[in-house]
């Protein structure tokens, strides 16, 4: 009597492995450079840079307005109101970035503000000594712009590291 063997268990059909996920990688060096730029220019960075640009334009307009505008409401608006409004815009955007950040970035932003204060204190003290030695006296707007520049550079560095 012939012996019949039970059929051997067949291995389950092997489905072909899924194709590897294609990572979108920039092809050319120019594309790679643009990708890096886009990573840096996040919304908070663009907001800070744009508001600071508006503030600088407003301060510049306020500086030259007395030469070109007659005394009156328009000149007072350009000299007094517009710089204050744009400065308020910068403060609001930085505060928005602060609120939108996590606790460590907030901690770093506060350190930036403290460091800016220290840098300003030493800078103004140093220039005061230079004034005693005969250097020209500076307008307080120079100190203001210098302080904003220092704080902005420190802030952008924090945002760049936290991206």
């Amino acid at each position: 009597m012939p012996v019949t063997h039970p059929p051997l268990p067949q291995p389950p059909p092997v489905s072909p492995p899924p194709p590897p996920a294609v990572q979108p990688s920039p092809a050319t060096p120019v594309d790679r450079a643009l990708a890096k730029v886009n990573r840096f220019y996040s919304l908070p960075v663009v907001g800070i840079l744009c508001s600071l640009w508006a503030y600088l334009v407003a301060v510049g307009a306020a500086a030259i307005a007395p030469r070109y505008l007659a005394a009156g409401g328009a000149r007072e608006l350009v000299v007094l109101v517009v710089p204050m409004v744009t400065a308020l815009l910068v403060v609001c955007i930085i505060f928005w970035v602060y609120l939108a950040s996590d606790e460590y970035v907030r901690h770093r932003i506060l350190k930036c503000a403290a460091l800016t204060g220290v840098i300003m204190a030493f800078s103004t003290l140093g220039y005061f000594c230079l004034e005693m030695l005969g250097y020209a006296r500076l307008s307080i707007i120079v100190v203001n712009l210098y302080g904003w520049a220092v704080f902005t550079v420190l802030m952008l560095w924090v945002l760049y590291r936290a991206r």
């Binding site: 950040s101 996590d102 606790e103 460590y104 970035v105 901690h107 590291r161 936290a162």
Partner: peptide, 21 residues
């Protein structure tokens, strides 16, 4: 829901997390 920089700072001991974190 924090930044990668925060995780790195906590892991390396440069930053002590808040109670909620």
């Amino acid at each position: 829901a924090v930044s990668r920089q925060t995780v790195n700072a906590v892991e390396t001991g440069r930053y002590e997390p808040s109670l909620s974190l």
